[in-house]
Amino acid sequence: MNVYDAVLCDFDGVIRHYDAAGLVELERSYGIAEGTTVKVALAPGLLTPVTQGQITVEQWRDSIVEGLARLLGSPERAAALGDAFARARAQLDEEVLGLLRRAQERVPVVLVTNATFQLEDDLRALGLARFFDEVVNSARVGAVKPERRIYEIAAERAGADAVRCLFVDDREENVEAARALGMTGVLYREAADLREALAPLLEGDRGAVLP
């Protein structure tokens, strides 16, 4: 019998990572603190509406530029930063994907992410459209992590009780919310965290043993 009946996994910060070097370079040239653009973009007041499906990605990006313009006093620089943010290149962690593929041979793997209506297009572009057994996108279901409902939806779609789910996320508040429902929560920092968490599930899998 498997130690888990499902693996629920976050996307950005675990599977997908952005290269913000160009954005950081532009921020430096403008004399503002590194990470300012991301801080504005991910502020709850701007991020929550788009991840709840209340506004479009385009409207979200416009709100980022408006927020930066108020901060910098320069619409032109704000627009340039907003464009650099939108164009940041994404990379997939192949080691994480490999671990999830092996887990998927034993239990369902469900993507659980605070995302926009663009997520499905992103998954297709990245070659992941058919990778996950289910995708729980906050913009589609109208609930965001760490709200209880999104975890319940994920467990339901996996066909598993919450107490039999492994949940992986790079944000502590999201992990704590999963644990409150009885899930096994793993705060992700590097691939080794996922390897360790999946080891009981992959016991007997030759690939699970580190050299």
Rank of each mutant, 00 (worst) to 15 (best):
D205Y: 01
A208Q: 13
A79C: 06
Q118C: 04
A139Y: 02
D93N: 14
G53M: 07
G185C: 01
G204R: 09
A21Q: 14
I15L: 12
D161E: 14
E134I: 06
A192H: 08
A80P: 04
R28S: 11
E203I: 10
M1I: 12
A129Q: 14
V24N: 07
S29E: 15
A115E: 14
A154C: 10
R101V: 08
Y188V: 04
L210G: 14
R171S: 09
E147K: 13
D169M: 10
L68Q: 05
A199E: 08
S63P: 04
V14N: 00
E94D: 13
A86Y: 05
E173V: 13
T184P: 09
F117V: 13
L81C: 05
Q59A: 14
G182D: 11
L111I: 03
F167S: 05
L198W: 00
G207T: 10
G73K: 10
V112M: 04
G67M: 07
V24T: 15
R61A: 08
R106G: 11
R195P: 05
V136E: 09
E147S: 14
D19M: 06
P211V: 06
V163T: 14
D93Y: 02
P200R: 00
L201F: 02
N114I: 04
G82Y: 02
P211N: 08
T37Y: 01
A20R: 11
P49T: 08
E134L: 07
R149K: 14
G98Y: 03
V168H: 01
V163N: 09
T116M: 10
D169T: 09
L119R: 05
F167L: 15
G159F: 02
R87Y: 03
R164Y: 09
G82M: 03
P44I: 03
Q54A: 14
V163Y: 06
F131L: 00
G142P: 05
G98A: 10
R89G: 07
G53W: 01
V3H: 08
G142Y: 02
A43R: 15
K39E: 15
V136H: 10
A80R: 13
V14M: 00
D133T: 12
V186H: 01
I150V: 15
E196M: 10
F11V: 02
P200Q: 01
V40H: 04
L46A: 13
G142N: 04
L194P: 00
M1A: 14
L97D: 07
A84S: 13
V107Q: 01
D5K: 15
A79S: 15
S29Y: 11
A143V: 13
V24D: 09
Y4E: 05
E25A: 15
